[in-house]
Nucleic acid binder design. Structure first.
Lengths: 329, 329
DNA sequence: AGAAGATGTGTAATCGATTACACATCGTTG
DNA sequence: CAACGATGTGTAATCGATTACACATCTTCT
């Protein structure tokens, strides 16, 4: 590998001058510049990032910790983050916790040792240990999707969006509304959306029936199974609508309903959250909420950049969302 | 940040001993070990990756260059790669060319300067310059999806898979088969799949009709538009089947056909490639080919690992695939 | 008992960049 | 014309790790 010393030698100057040329710092003569530029071009030289980092403490890398790489939400968010980081000439180091909370801490440490300039955390559950770790963390951290105390966080408007869905359902005349959620250890998706569900029912004096509620694990299959449970447990009094906290689970739920000959939304209306691409093309098309994931990615990206620049954040921000009414309700 | 020197001082030994302790190299006494372990625990010390890299030339990072982050295929592949890299304690540095061939070269260089230990390239088009760049490249590179001369490549069985689709279509009695492809600058998706299409028709002495063929750009919308063009240009003699080179475009095509009141597969059969999640849930469910993207990701991952270890590869490998017969044909 | 090997630790060079400081040259100005 | 600022370049320390080499003890074996 060519180093700055090689370039210096070939161009007949000292490595200091080469460095100055590269970084545009200090004066470099016309002639020297040309020779250096030439040599660099010929050799295809690129400065060693590790040497630079060792001196400057800047890696030009930010780390992303996400629960699962291969989901639509993740890849949209990453794409958004990528957009702003590219603009700043920064690279992205991806880590995937596979929904294991311990890994969140592990990767936090790893990114520290890699001296990431900043970290974007898409957490799922927020434990004691995680918070402790972040408290004394030497690297700027921002969070997306969950509100982490002490960390600038951009959250989705889970409560409001869910309320909107519920209103829509209720507005359409549905009174027996079921729910397919996820574990409450997930504050945003598990807890908040469910609270919005029960709150909406209570506000309208509608029944909150345990057997109309089921828990899945984000997968399409788990939505199918959850729907199956709800239907088989309520043969005599099935719900006439189901609010699913993710589009994937909603898709599974619809799949089961269709199999069983229920008409959607005639017999049972279904709504989801997330606006997966698929939701528009299944039949009937799925009523859902779009969270502008890509823009949210850009927004946390900017947020991290600002935090890195020392700008304090008002800690709590909610990203916009949009209710998408389609044919399943 | 605590450094190895701090640890050494606190533990009352030299930094050499600390290093040996950390790397399990050479002898370290019981007592010293304990003191060092203690201090490290107390301080939460992690060695500086950049300093290590500067000395050892190993970053523990591999780069992935992909055409677009936020696609199902990409995220599946990345997930697969991640799986094997995690096993080896390696991190992934993601770069996204946004389908710009120039960026492929740019990122290659960037990953060089970051001293990635290896690179996985998901190229789209393969130009002269790209090949030149790779030829003298100091870092192991492997490719997925496209066969790049001189580079160990794992390709999908595009020709065979497409032929299978065509056989299926023909076997079902279709004789007027249309085609929705992408630009031929993409050797695998654009060229190979189209060749398989025309070859299959010729083999059966079926008509290859220009106006039954249209080009999209991978997007659902472009599939819709392509289908529209084919139908409007052939009012009197529309095809009775369409082979789309991606599921997304097939989805768009179906959307148009449904809108226009064509029954699928009664009036027009549709088939795609890629087995997007959505394909199973749209109506009718889409006949397609599954490329085992995640496994392919694992496979190139292993391939890269081997290449990095100095094992020469038989250059050309084809990944398995599976025809999935559903209701659209 | 003395030699040979095993065990445990330290000294100092090194990786490839950045940067404070010093020095030289040149044009401008009072 | 002496002095000063602008311009252009080099010397050497530094960042935080690894590692070749040297040295000291302690076992063990003949």
């Amino acid at each position: 590998m060519t180093t700055i010393n090689d370039i210096a030698k070939l161009a007949g100057v000292s490595r200091t001058t080469v460095s100055r040329f590269l970084n545009n710092s200090g004066y470099v003569g016309q002639e020297a510049s040309e020779r250096i530029a030439q040599v660099i071009n010929e050799t295809g030289y690129m400065p060693s990032q590790s040497a630079q980092t060792l001196r400057t403490k800047k890696t030009g890398v930010i780390g992303i910790i996400l629960p699962k790489i291969s989901t639509e939400t993740s890849s949209r968010v990453v794409s958004g983050i990528n957009k702003v980081m590219k603009r700043e000439g920064m690279q992205i180091l991806l880590t995937d916790t596979e929904l294991d909370p311990d890994k969140e801490i592990e990767y936090l440490r790893l990114l520290k040792s890699r001296q990431a300039d900043g970290i974007i955390l898409l957490a799922t559950n927020i434990g004691e240990r995680l918070q402790q770790e972040i408290e004394a963390f030497p690297i700027p951290v921002v969070a997306l999707g969950q509100n982490i105390p002490g960390v600038p966080s951009l959250t989705y408007a889970d409560y409001d969006a869910s309320s909107d869905i519920m209103h829509l359902l209720i507005g359409k005349g549905h009174r027996k509304i079921g729910f397919i959620g996820v574990s409450e250890t997930d504050p945003a998706v598990g807890k908040l959306r469910q609270t919005a569900y029960t709150d909406a029912l209570k506000r309208q004096n509608l029944e909150v029936k345990e057997s109309w509620m089921a828990e899945g694990d984000f997968s399409i299959d788990s939505g199918y199974e959850a729907m199956k449970r709800i239907i088989t447990d309520n043969r005599s009094d099935p719900p006439d609508a189901v609010f699913c906290v993710t589009d994937r689970m909603a898709t599974g739920a619809m799949e089961y309903l269709k199999e069983q000959g229920f008409s959607i939304p005639g017999d049972v209306a279904v709504a989801g959250i997330g606006d997966a691409v698929m939701s528009r093309y299944i039949t009937p098309s799925l009523t859902t909420v779009n969270y502008y994931n890509e823009e949210a990615g850009e927004a946390v990206g900017e947020m991290l950049l600002e935090t890195m620049a020392g700008i304090k954040h008002s800690k709590k921000m909610m990203h916009k969302y949009r209710l998408i009414k389609r044919d399943s309700v």
